[in-house]
């Protein structure tokens, strides 16, 4: 009887957005009198940080710092339609809608600035710090603060924009299944290292090294929090979770966090995250949706590592000590 080590690998891809498309999201953007910008949505922030990402996307497009953008989510009286936050679609769909709305608002803003500066709007650019400059002559400039005041009080313009993003729905062909499930895919490869106690069947995940390709990390810190949380969830799915631990007997399912088995802080592996960026053709600044993808590759990587360690295949999730011991027993020569 011994503690045995093994490692396993898994590589996956994951579609961004609602399967087969047909899932609209709309956005509205407008400026306040002093050149702050409001983004109005009915999209839902589930804790992943959607508001912050939408602020950065709007700010990038308009040409102001992110803290000058306020995002209002989820009031059906004010926010335009969003299909919802699911299917790794929030950033991709709402982000594209915000870009379109912000571009329209930016165009009005540049037109007002052009009138103030007595130049053509096409000759203007933003510096990302809240100023509008004449290309090639940056000494000739006006602040977005002043442009907004002018638009509101002098020129009677609304610096605002409407945005929407919709991938037309694909209908699978009945006989062949020809279809377009998604327009872009995130990718991952995970290597997991485990120790298996062949006396107790207990698995300890030592390290998980995740490589994620996500299009573009719009906010690297927020990407990190989502990817690490997903990686932990993958381990949890691999080794612990079920609502019916004694299935086909359906009694004794967990009813609270004491009974429903999930890993505690001590059960989590040393986790490494590396991010690659291949911008997607239709993503907001190239972003894909990594929200679901990041919890998937750990499950087979751990399963393959368990096999590498003790030579038994557990093809039913979760990979419990009981299943490992039964498999070891079945494999042992009598």
């Amino acid at each position: 009887m011994a503690i045995r080590r093994g490692r396993g690998v898994a590589a996956i891809n994951y579609p961004t957005g609602m399967n087969l498309g047909g899932d609209p999201t709309q956005a509205l953007v407008h400026s306040t009198p002093t050149g702050n910008f409001m983004v109005t949505l009915s999209s839902v922030d589930l804790g992943q940080g959607m508001k912050q990402i939408m602020a950065q996307i709007c700010a990038e497009t308009i040409g102001v710092p992110s803290d000058r953008v306020v995002v209002d989510t989820a009031d059906t009286d004010t926010g335009p339609h969003c299909m919802g936050t699911f299917a790794s679609r929030g950033t991709h769909r709402a982000g594209n809608a915000v870009i379109q709305a912000a571009r329209e608002a930016r165009q009005v803003m540049l037109e007002v600035a052009a009138e103030e500066l007595e130049v053509n709007a096409s000759d203007l650019e933003t510096d990302g710090q809240g100023n509008i400059l004449v290309k090639g002559a940056p000494q000739k400039s006006i602040s977005i603060f002043d442009v907004a005041l002018s638009a509101h009080f002098k020129r009677g313009r609304s610096i605002s924009g409407r945005g929407m993003f919709l991938i037309p729905r694909s209908y699978p062909e009945k006989e062949t299944g020809a279809m377009k499930p998604s327009t872009c895919y995130a990718h991952a490869c995970t290597v997991a290292e485990v120790e298996v106690d062949d006396e107790t069947g207990e698995v300890t995940v030592l390290t998980v090294k995740n490589i994620f390709e996500i299009g573009r990390a719009l906010n690297p810190k927020m990407v990190e929090q989502q990817l690490i949380g997903g990686s932990w969830m993958g381990i949890s799915h691999a080794l612990y979770e079920t609502t019916e631990p004694y299935y086909p007997n359906r009694d004794h399912g967990g009813t609270d966090f004491n009974q429903y088995l999930m890993p505690g802080p001590g059960d989590l592996a040393q986790t490494e995250i590396i991010v690659l960026e291949r911008p997607s053709a239709d993503g907001p600044y190239g972003a894909k949706g990594p929200g679901e993808m990041c919890a998937n590759p750990q499950i087979p990587a751990v399963a393959n590592a368990v096999f590498d360690a003790v030579g038994v295949r557990i093809d039913t999730l979760p990979i419990t000590p009981e299943r490992i011991l039964r498999a070891l027993k079945a494999q042992a020569p009598n």
């Binding site: 994951y14 579609p15 969830m233 929200g291 679901e292 919890a295 998937n296 399963a303 393959n304």
Partner: peptide
């Protein structure tokens, strides 16, 4: 999370 795919990826990659 991973609807329709997560368990499929477990199966495919094992």
């Amino acid at each position: 999370r991973g609807f329709g795919v997560t368990i499929g990826d477990f199966a495919l990659e094992v």
